[in-house]
Design a protein around this nucleic acid. Sequence first.
DNA 1: GTCTAGCCTG
DNA 2: CAGGCTAGAC
Length: 624
Amino acid sequence: MNLSHPDQNMHGSGEGCLEDDKPDVMLPCFRRNMYDEPLSSYSNGSIISQLLRKTIHSKRALDESHFYLSSSTAADSGQEDQSSVSSKDSTVEASSPGAHVSTGASLEGELPMTDHLQAKRARVENIIRVMAGSPNSRQHGDSEKVDTDAKDTREAREAHRENKRKQRLPQHQEHSVGAPASRRPSDNCNTKDEECHKLKEQLHSMQRLLRQLQEKFLQNLASHYTSSDDDFERKHGRAKSQNLQETLKQELSRAVNDCVERVFKKVSPAGLDLSPQQHMCSSPEISLGVDRKSQQATSTQEQPQDEEAAVKPRSLEYYESSEAQSPQDQTEALSLVVRKPAVVPLSSVAPAVKRPYPVHQTPFQFNYSTPLHDSQILEHLLKYGPHSNFGGLPCMPPSMDRTSPDPVDLPWDAIAMRSKVTSSHLGHQPRPSALGGVTVDNLCLPHVKIECGELQSMAERNPYMSVHIQEGLTPSHLKKAKLMFFYTRYPSSNVLKTFFPDVKFNRCITSQLIKWFSNFREFYYIQMEKFARQAIVDGVSDVKDITVSRDSELFRALNMHYNKANDFHVPDRFLEVAEITLHEFYNAIAATKDSDPSWKKAIYKVICKLDSDVPEEFKTSSYL
DNA sequence: GTCTAGCCTG
DNA sequence: CAGGCTAGAC
């Protein structure tokens, strides 16, 4: 197959719609293709079984089965592949009407079936063909006259019209607002066009899901149906397939219904504004891979057992939840992932963590709050692909589950931690908004490091990602080390290597890091001795009267040193350790042990046992 | 010999 | 915070 063909289709079907198609042209087309017939089929549930039947037979035809597998795989790549798949789909069916599975006649010859089943199959095949086939490719597949009613005629006209538009369009679609003069004079609503585009993509995602469902069944049931057609009728197989069918039918029907409802809401006069949800839907491939662990339970009673069946409704919920979480933000984030560094108002990322202090007061804040947004998405996409779980991203519904070591979870954790700063001593301080309108590329991208070499090479090809393994330690690393000091005063070399994955370790770097912590300890112990002596001077007679709280002057001094930006919520454990240390110093001084030149060593020995584990979040290279 | 903690100094 | 130095552990 001509490789350039799908590309053309991609641009044409996707962007062409965006620019040219009017809603009154597109929507009827979509409704008819995707909703009118399929809906009725979905409602009675027969489509699933028919899809299964078709898929099963497709399996027997190697070409066809290969197509399904490849199409499912290719669909992962997004819109481009979706379109190409669609094109392939219809092309295959059209070019081989009698060869394999496309027609009931061919099957009839090798597999006697009841008229009822044949009729159903023919109908479903037609539905699938209509759904999967792009108008462009359909034009070449008219010879297949499974359904010759007026729908096909109208569809062919529209396909022809769209194809002509595509031919006019350059390969590189213009996204400019101003449409060429050749376009319809009445094309006064780009929003509508975009909406159509989004909806179309949404429909593509539904098509892909359908294919995935088919493939899933193909895998699950291949053992039953590929060996012998008689097996298909076996009781066990039937029971199993019906079980799965029921599940799939329910889930698929519900998902499609939801989708249709949404579409109709969008196209209603009141819903013409581009909603964030549509933006979400414009990238369905991302939602398809949402980790179900991060998903909330579906609203329905039945729990889908089939993975693919479960994905679809969840993806829709995902849209909704995302919409609720960050309406505009998602659009920007997803679009800039591959296209542009955009000014992202971080206030829309996670309103819950918005803090009222001016941005200029916390330079460090941005060093690791801003990357949370863009770079994390970029990193996540590059690292895990668009199908990965975005639940940890700040623009996504945050998961309160902190069990995931996924570095991408970190940003939210980081923000959340800072958001939890409610100490009285910090309360009076103006706090920088972590969500100020700051351009991402100005602040954070240079700080983003990725330890994965492959990812790095990928990132290097992305002009908007400046990621690299650090040859040396940076101020960001120093700040990170200081924050780590709140957890560990005596980190081992292994810990340092673990928590600085973006650092290319060598003897010198290791020594420098160790030296840093040595210096941290030095300051820490100096402060302890100083305040312990002060307590003695102040006449404190009972060590129990010495406490370290967030209001304490000692804590302020330490916090000023290790957390100068005051954007990190110091763990309570550090306060405990500080108090213990202070007590140790107080007791030693009170006992005049300080006359011994090595009197501090005993204290060091105690304190070194009080280290805590550094949170997993610190492991991420983006925690800078 | 190497590594590291700690001390001192700038 | 880094460099130099010493002492101790391995």
